[in-house]
């Protein structure tokens, strides 16, 4: 042949019914989803800055390219919105908040909202096998994408930091993917677990230096090490500055 053949890469989730598509860990965005993600992020960013007077410290610590994982303490549904608003809009299709499957992907309507607007991927907490984490790790390494996740696993009941779970280690151990630790202050007061509507108090997010675990072995010990390192990094960001 005189010219090289074109290479086609069909959508990984092509042909899935809507419910399965929204839950698919390989889900990719079409034009409608892009419009949804972009619109949602613009609205959320405007609301957080206007109504919650969101204050950001350390924005220079966010890497300029994907892949990356952004983590923080977790006390409110606002946390994922705060973290996604830190990232450039051009990444809206490629950054996925990892959300509780039993909260955001149980019913078709909520799943659609989570997939088409938030661009969330499900994590099934009760039956989260290694294959799900392995799928997420594979996607993170193979294509440039980003995850927003909360290593505590669930929202804190009292606003205090809970011990981190080692799942984050399974995703990044032995890879060059940077993990950006953040600490969000004020989200628990604004929208704790027991409230349905938020109070519009001030929110503050501190962004720490990214950490890379390329030399950490991808085994149980390595995962625990990563888990401890990240917990320590988030706790450091939690500390009030001297004289405050």
């Amino acid at each position: 042949m005189s010219v090289q053949s074109w290479e086609y890469k069909p959508a990984k989730d092509s042909g899935l019914p809507m419910a399965a598509w929204t839950r698919s860990l390989g889900r990719e965005s079409g034009l409608l989803s892009t419009v949804g993600h972009l619109g949602w992020r613009v609205v959320v960013r405007t609301a957080l800055r206007g109504l919650h007077r969101l204050q950001i410290e350390g924005k220079r610590n966010i890497p300029h390219a994907l892949p990356m994982v952004v983590i923080s303490n977790h006390a409110s549904h606002l946390d994922a919105l705060v973290l996604s608003s830190l990232l450039p809009l051009k990444w809206c299709d490629h950054v996925f908040p990892v959300a509780a499957g039993d909260v955001f992907f149980e019913t078709p309507r909520v799943s659609w909202f989570a997939a088409v607007l938030i661009n969330a991927l499900p994590m099934w907490r009760k039956s989260c096998g290694r294959h799900a984490l392995a799928d997420l790790r594979q996607r993170l390494v193979q294509e440039p994408c980003g995850y927003i996740l909360f290593p505590e696993g669930k929202r804190s009941a009292d606003g205090q930091l809970q011990p981190f779970k080692p799942g984050i280690g399974m995703m990044v151990a032995g890879t060059a993917v940077p993990v950006v630790p953040c600490h969000i202050q004020g989200a628990f007061e604004a929208l704790p677990r027991y409230r349905r509507l938020p109070r519009f108090n001030r929110l503050r997010v501190r962004i720490g230096q990214p950490l890379v675990f390329v030399d950490v072995p991808n085994d149980h010990e390595g995962w625990q090490h990563i888990c401890a390192e990240l917990e320590r990094a988030v706790k450091e960001l939690q500390r009030p500055e001297p004289g405050v």
């Binding site: 086609y8 890469k9 069909p10 959508a11 092509s14 990719e28 079409g30 034009l31 892009t34």
Partner: peptide, 20 residues
């Protein structure tokens, strides 16, 4: 939509916007 999903053209948002 089906054609762009099958060929992978859906990843090229600018082209898709112009075709739409």
């Amino acid at each position: 939509r089906e054609f762009s999903l099958a060929t992978g053209l859906f990843r090229e948002k600018l082209v898709s916007v112009l075709v739409v």
